[in-house]
């Protein structure tokens, strides 16, 4: 009896969960499907989910119209470059805050996080002017710098929470065993913290990949990553649904796959260690 009942409940919950998650996922699914339709079918008043003539012509059109791979490459360089550069700066800081705590450590962390609160518009004009004067407008280097800086607080904080979980005694043991501070970090801390470092890197790649304020404002043709590439579809090409869908799919699929593979690691980092 009880067993029957619990299967019934499970069935109901499963149904609700699949329905809701299906609705949430629908816009993405719809985009993916539409990208394989012809323009006529894409705007049809009685749209079909699967029963249409699948075509790749939209992808060909998108590739022909704009240098997708340039934008793709820019996105890769900017997101991965800024994440790695950020790690190099953040790891020493996180080490020092996690293992050599002082009274100021907590305040320092709070201050770093508070720089995230600084609205980008507050510094928009100076950054724009500085970039113009230093010739950094529309360059990958410029964007790598900006992405590194805006994500640095998050990286420090994430690494800090991961490092905090490593028992101090293990590092002290290394010190007793004759390791210099450099060796201690290289041979002991980093290997132990590797999963945490990897998820920090990952989250920042995703954040930088999707960042759409500075990337839109500071780039034109040369260094524009996929966010800017896709923004150019806002009008009037936006009315060509199939092409828009194909371009969208090409912009999001790489990061979607990366995110799905790493969802477990992402949770902790995203919540700044508040949730394990």
């Amino acid at each position: 009896m009880a067993n029957n009942n619990s299967i019934k409940t499970k069935l109901i919950y499963t149904f609700i969960a699949w329905t809701i998650s299906g609705l949430i996922f629908f816009p993405i699914l719809w985009t993916l499907i539409t990208s394989f339709k012809t323009e006529a079918e894409a705007i049809s008043a009685s749209p079909s989910l699967f029963m249409f003539d699948w075509t790749l012509e939209n992808y060909e059109d998108v590739l022909a119209r704009s240098p997708y791979f340039n934008h793709f490459w820019n996105s890769i360089v900017i997101s991965i470059g800024s994440s790695i550069l950020g790690l190099l700066i953040a790891i020493p800081a996180a080490w020092s805050m996690a293992f050599v705590q002082t009274k100021r450590t907590k305040n320092l962390l709070m201050w770093m996080l508070s720089t995230k609160m600084l609205p980008p518009v507050g510094v928009l004009i100076p950054i724009y002017l500085l970039f113009r004067d230093f010739g950094l407008l529309d360059t990958k280097v410029g964007l790598v710098i900006v992405m590194t800086l805006i994500n640095l607080p998050i990286m420090v904080w994430m690494l800090y929470t991961y490092f905090r979980e490593i028992p101090n005694e293990v590092l002290e043991a290394a010190r007793m065993d004759g390791a210099s501070i450099g060796e201690e970090i290289l041979y002991v801390l980093l290997p132990i913290a590797l999963p945490g470092i990897a998820s920090t890197l990952l989250l920042n790649v995703i954040l930088a990949w999707n960042e759409a304020f500075w990337t839109l404002i500071l780039t034109a043709a040369n260094a524009a990553p996929l966010t800017a590439f896709i923004a150019s579809y806002s009008s009037p090409e936006g009315l060509f649904y199939a092409k828009l869908s194909a371009a969208s799919a090409m912009a999001i699929v790489p990061i979607l796959i990366l995110g799905w593979f790493s969802q477990k690691q992402l949770v902790r980092g995203l919540s700044f260690g508040a949730v394990k």
């Binding site: 299906g22 949430i24 993405i28 985009t31 839109l216 923004a231 806002s234 999001i252 990061i255």
Partner: peptide, 12 residues
Amino acid sequence: MVLAPFFVMPTV
């Protein structure tokens, strides 16, 4: 499926 929208860039 629930997680997916988070990875979609705002412009898209």
